[in-house]
Design a protein around this nucleic acid. Structure first.
Lengths: 258, 258
DNA sequence: TGACCTTCTGGTCAGCGCGACATTAAGATG
DNA sequence: CATCTTAATGTCGCGCTGACCAGAAGGTCA
């Protein structure tokens, strides 16, 4: 419950656990995306990384994560390690892939990687809350997803795959709503799509698609800015961000053979 | 290399390995689909299951699989355990999901599950080859995917999810080609789609879609039957069954940070 | 105040893909 | 030779989409 381990570390740094030389260990990491407006420029896709403080790849940036506990579900481990290392709580969490190449780490580690979204307004809010509480996470920094440094392990490749999945999923689901605050304009949502897809979208056509989908509820409020005020929308309650199929959102592997 | 272990077994049956009571072990299983024509009826989606011979769920049917070796990539483990338990070699193999609920097994087991396709003509061919060689796999039986018995562990749920992924993927990729022999008619391919999707497709519209996709090469041969002969097609060489994105088909986690 | 700019919002139009359906071709069967 | 079944081609209408236009509604600045 109160583990303090960070990422897959060197063999010598795991005193209690069995010798990594002959055991396959399971780690859990998370690629968590958010959008942030740089200056007055267009919003960009960003993700938090953690600087490693232990031997394999010490000093390099890596995905937030940690070891899987013996009595912990995979989803719970992803949420826990993400919170422990970055102090963040995701608004959407989904398993990405299990990476297990023998040569991806000095010791044998299978990483169950999740990808997640964080509401744009929660980035600053959660960071500020932790700063006020005095438990601000250390060695955490946000990077633009399109311009990352060389990361530890195969994490560059993992982020590349997570981006690919996100760009795919944004096309056939309402997943981008997970980046939005409670109320937002269609321009906000469109800019999130543009940040993910890396190309501009026609505002009129975008509006048509969203309205037809029925996933948004218009409010009577408007956001006033430099120009004509824009109507604020809220996400429809009964619409899931994505169709998980037989994998239930909260308890993924249930329902069969009790 | 010459392991003979079958599925995740009871603690007492793993003498050399560390005690399962305090270690999370990694298993690999595979849901492998094929199509078989029942009688002169329409083809159906079938999959092979293995009857368990050890304690947890002994006697129940389960997915083919086994333990991950310490120096073995995940993909290799899926191929190896599939061959060891069923004698089959898949024509397409893709990671499905990592299942790791604490309560899915008496001991803590994280299962990296793959899903695969087997060419219809290879089902009988591979079985016959093993029978001739005297190493026919035991306790293996094919079941219709739509009508399975109660399986061990959470395997019913896993098959359900694999079916969902297959039905999804068949809509936006050429994955169904992995079920076809070297040469096949459009009716063969359409019936595979129908078996997967569970509904009839219009032959004319199906032909139009396939021809436009450019994934098939018409031959000069025809299959003669009870009615007008049907032209035989071959899959286009340069067309992958599915877009894996940054995950290369043979060596999934490479290319980054050398 | 009024000209001008930018964004929001609604609308039109052509092209494409797809489902539904009609029609002809070609071999097997009796 | 009539008939049946499947193979293969063609036609039509609908809905979605991208490109584009036009008015609405606020600011900004001379």
């Amino acid at each position: 419950m109160t583990r303090t381990s960070l990422l897959p570390a060197s063999p010598s740094s795991a005193p209690v656990e069995a010798s990594p030389a002959d055991v396959t260990r399971v780690a859990v990491s998370t690629v968590i995306f958010s959008v942030r407006r740089e200056d007055d420029d267009c919003p960009r896709l960003v993700l938090p990384l953690v600087r490693r403080t232990r031997d394999p790849f010490e000093g390099l940036w890596a995905l937030p994560g940690g070891w899987l506990d013996i009595a912990e579900n995979l989803d719970d481990a992803a949420s826990r390690t993400l919170a422990e290392t970055t102090g963040l709580t995701a608004s959407y969490l989904e398993q990405l892939y299990a990476f297990g190449r023998v040569d991806r780490s000095p010791s044998r580690v299978v990483s169950i990687v999740y990808w997640a979204l964080l509401r744009a307004d929660e980035v600053d809010a959660q960071v500020a809350a932790h700063a006020a509480a005095g438990d601000a996470p250390e060695n955490v920094e946000w990077f633009p997803a399109a311009d990352l440094p060389t990361l530890a392990f195969d994490h560059n490749h993992i982020v590349e795959y997570a981006l690919w999945r996100l760009r795919n999923k944004v096309g056939y689901s309402r997943i981008a709503h997970g980046l939005m605050a409670d109320a937002f304009t269609l321009a906000d949502l469109r800019e999130a799509y543009e940040a993910i897809l890396g190309r501009r979208l026609d505002p009129a056509n975008f509006r048509r698609q969203v309205e037809k989908s029925g996933t948004l509820v218009p409010t009577d409020e408007f956001r006033t800015g430099s120009h004509r005020p824009a109507r604020l929308y809220r996400p429809h309650q009964d619409v899931e961000l994505a169709d998980r199929g037989p994998l239930a959102p909260t308890a993924p592997h249930e329902s069969s053979t009790p």
